[in-house]
Amino acid sequence: MNIIDQGQGELFLDPDPDKAREFFRTKNRKQVNKVMDLKDAIARFVKDGDYLAIGGFGANRTPIAACHEIVRQKKKNLGFAGHTSTHDMEVLSAGEVYDRIDVAYVIGLEARGLSPCSRQYMESGKVKVTEWTNYSLAARLRAAAMGVPFVPTRNVMGTDTIKYSAAKTVECPFTGKKVVLMPALYPDVSVIHVHEADVYGNARFRGIAVADIDLANASKRLIITTERLIHSDEIKRDPSATRIPYFLVDAVCEVPYGAYPGTMPYEYFSDEAHLREWLNVEKDPAEFKAFLAKNIFDCKDHEEYIARNGGMKKMLELRAKELLLFKEV
């Protein structure tokens, strides 16, 4: 195929499907108990230098507990899929755990404003950046999930976004039209937060999928954090509810309120006051250091973080808010 145009951005991962197949060939197919502490899962499956992807959408069904643990364990030189990353990126930027990033949406927390810490880190020159879009990264995960080296799309043509990406524009052999080839993205490790999983890793979540089905399929190693463990009989009773099958999964960690301070659909709404506190405290480096000590480094785990920020009383407030219990609609 004749290459019409190509981005000058760095491709951080090899899109070769045969290399991915060789890796997937080695993964265990047996249903075995994969339950472990989040601390152990992060220590074992997130290695310095890995390329990391985080499920959910910014501060929605996002494994924030895992992001804290990655920072607490001071992981280094990670690659990161900045796919609608908002509070997850804010946490990872605070730890400066990544040094290269595929950008679709970064720094911002949508309507809440921009993270000074993420912004400073991105403007520091310490981070290698390749530009994409939300759909481009979703398409790259789709290609990986399909086991093919790329998928064609029709966005980004004519813009600087493609110029700073690693995509290529070619002529379609069927129609003669230009299409963009989005290279497959096989993350070394991903973390996805779900509502329910059994001990083998069969996982269910409710609400929007974002790109998590393709992400689960594309990832070489996958950590599932779950609001609660359920019995495998329950999975077998209603297999149509399973969104992620066990054989993709390496670790299952039961982390109630694992998306806090973000939203977990049908469970709890985001803690807007606490998210605002994050954004405000970042403006003062000394204050931010103390804040990180209090909320990440001096916390044993997510349970302690939650206890330090309102505990069960706060969780019940956020549940009432999520379920609109006291609002007429």
Partner: peptide
């Protein structure tokens, strides 16, 4: 039911036709 804070928060699929994917 109210203004969403995020294009992915629960309000964006409240009483919706479908809670789908980005794709």
């Amino acid at each position: 039911p109210e203004m969403p804070i995020s294009v992915g928060d629960s309000r964006t699929f409240y009483k919706a036709a479908m809670a789908g994917s980005m794709g």
